[in-house]
Amino acid sequence: MTIFRNGGVLVLLSFLAACSSGPVPAEHINDPFEETNRQIHEFNKAVDAVALAPASATYGAVVPEELRDAVDNSANNLALPGQTVNHILQGEFADAVQTAARFALNSTLGVAGLFDPASDLGLFELPTNFGETLQVYGVAEGPYLELPLIGGSTVRGTLGMVADFAIDPLQYYIPSPEREYLFLLKGVDLVGDRHTYSDLVNLLLYESSDSYASQRIAYLQNMRHNLDTELVVEDLEDPFAFDY
């Protein structure tokens, strides 16, 4: 079963790798599924308007900031074992050690991750995911996808999300009822994040003339930035091109 699943992923990966990777210009958009993506975007926006936005407003009003921070710390802490695996797969061993040390410290001294003493010691979060691991192995980002309830992604990002779920060590160590609670915690944290970044999300979703296109460029540019595919100076457009 596991072998079959991994085999399927491998076939997809070799297909994507054949599409070749390399740095992508900052404004590059590859969106052959735009029509479907736009329909999903409207669905996501409706879900946000009727459920997520009101829930996050209530959450922000009812739950004190200290508790919201603790939930956020705790959810971020749970992501660290998976991130450690990805750092190892990427050959970034120093980052893997820092992430593992952060997890050890915050899970113990930080009371199961509610607090973040590791950052005070300079052991900052080094976020990564399997999408980045795929990029390190030369897999191209592939077409843009907007996923139901999740939002912006790419083919590579989506495969990475599935893989992240499979390689997360926690799910093999934590027994069943607790595992579901942790899933719930991640859900609550999502509501919290929607509250923390409400100005930005509202700007993007409700104040822009084409929220789909705005979200797409924001997602793609931010994702490329997080993957250290820095703006290449040679790729900068001519700033005086429209000096008419």
């Binding site: 404004e27 822009s208 003339s209 296109a213 705005s214 540019q221 931010n222 490329r224 930035h225």
Partner: peptide, 13 residues
């Protein structure tokens, strides 16, 4: 900002 260009954003807007 975190990779997101104001010019790109406003060009779309």
């Amino acid at each position: 900002i975190e990779g997101i260009s104001l010019i790109s954003t406003e060009r779309i807007e």
